Simulated assay, not measured.
Amino acid sequence: MTFPTQPVFVYEGTWSAEMRAHPAMDWMYNFTSNIFDNRAWDIPTEQYLTEDFVLKKSDGTEVHGREAAWAADKALYAPFTAHKHEPRGLMCAENAEGWEMVGRANLYVNLPGAPSEGEKKVKDLDGKEWDAVCAGMFRFLYVKDESGFQGIKLKRTEVCSDPLPALGLMLKRGVVTPEQLLSG
């Protein structure tokens, strides 16, 4: 049995000119590098996110609406003193509104608090040292919108990430307590 298919952009690796040749991936590079990884949270969200933007967090919680979802997105990164997304691969297909992308990435983070004895750093592909790395998969829906940055806006983000490497260090450093984690 055959199934209808459509062309898909498949890429293995991190940021590159080849990846950025795709319009949605170039948008993603600029959005991730210039906003997220620079912690430039005070952006004109209407240029980047649709009014009905949805953030689906790793715990399954969905936050609806541009401003509420953006606040929730910022809160996910608030515990870190610095962070960097390093893409590892993706598949992106065009749809009626724009594009849908599913990708893998490493999130490198630095954490508050003093390192505990024996704590080891991890290195990103550029050789920079970080406190921890969290592996993740993401799903993004982009829409073509001339009022958006580069003619594109983000409509939905779904995060599937393992926070345990960062949480374990935060517990060891006393940044959070087990009671805080268990209270919700």
Rank of each mutant, 00 (worst) to 15 (best):
Met1Arg: 13
Met1Trp: 11
Phe3Lys: 14
Pro4His: 12
Thr5Tyr: 03
Thr5Leu: 04
Gln6Gly: 09
Pro7Thr: 02
Val8Thr: 12
Phe9Thr: 10
Phe9Leu: 01
Phe9Asn: 10
Thr14Ile: 05
Ser16Lys: 08
Ala17Ile: 10
His22Asn: 04
Pro23His: 01
Pro23Cys: 02
Ala24Arg: 03
Ala24Leu: 06
Ala24Phe: 04
Met25Leu: 11
Asn30Leu: 14
Asn30Lys: 15
Asn30Val: 03
Phe31Asp: 01
Thr32Glu: 07
Asn34Lys: 00
Phe36Asn: 08
Phe36Ser: 09
Phe36Ile: 06
Asp37His: 05
Asp37Ile: 07
Asn38Glu: 15
Arg39Phe: 12
Ala40Cys: 13
Glu46Thr: 10
Tyr48Glu: 01
Tyr48Leu: 09
Tyr48Cys: 03
Phe53Leu: 06
Phe53Pro: 03
Val54Ala: 11
Leu55His: 04
Lys56Trp: 14
Gly60His: 05
Glu62Pro: 04
Glu62Ile: 07
Val63Thr: 06
Val63Lys: 03
Val63Trp: 04
Val63Gly: 06
Gly65Gln: 01
Arg66Gly: 11
Glu67Tyr: 08
Ala68Cys: 09
Ala69Thr: 10
Ala69Ile: 03
Trp70Tyr: 05
Ala71Leu: 07
Ala71Asn: 05
Asp73Gln: 14
Lys74Phe: 10
Lys74Ser: 05
Tyr77Cys: 04
Phe80Met: 08
Phe80Glu: 09
Glu86Pro: 11
Glu86Ala: 01
Pro87Asn: 00
Pro87Cys: 03
Gly89Gln: 07
Leu90Ala: 02
Leu90Pro: 05
Met91Gln: 13
Met91Gly: 13
Cys92Pro: 02
Asn95Leu: 06
Ala96Asn: 09
Asn110His: 08
Leu111Phe: 02
Ala114Glu: 15
Pro115Asp: 02
Pro115Glu: 03
Ser116Leu: 09
Gly118Arg: 02
Lys121His: 11
Lys121Asp: 14
Lys121Tyr: 09
Lys123His: 04
Gly127Glu: 02
Gly127Gln: 06
Ala132His: 01
Val133Phe: 00
Val133Met: 04
Cys134Asn: 12
Cys134Gly: 09
Met137Gly: 14
Arg139Ser: 11
Tyr142Pro: 14
Val143Cys: 00
Val143Lys: 05
Glu146Met: 11
Ser147Gln: 05
Gly148Phe: 08
Gln150Phe: 10
Gln150Arg: 12
Gly151Asn: 03
Lys153Trp: 02
Lys155Pro: 13
Lys155Phe: 06
Lys155His: 08
Arg156Thr: 13
Cys160Tyr: 15
Ser161Leu: 14
Asp162Tyr: 05
Pro163Cys: 06
Leu164Glu: 14
Pro165Val: 01
Ala166Val: 07
Leu167Phe: 10
Leu167Ile: 10
Lys172Met: 03
Val175Gln: 01
Val176Ile: 14
Pro178Ile: 04
Pro178Gly: 07
Gln180Pro: 05
Gln180Lys: 06
Leu182Gly: 11
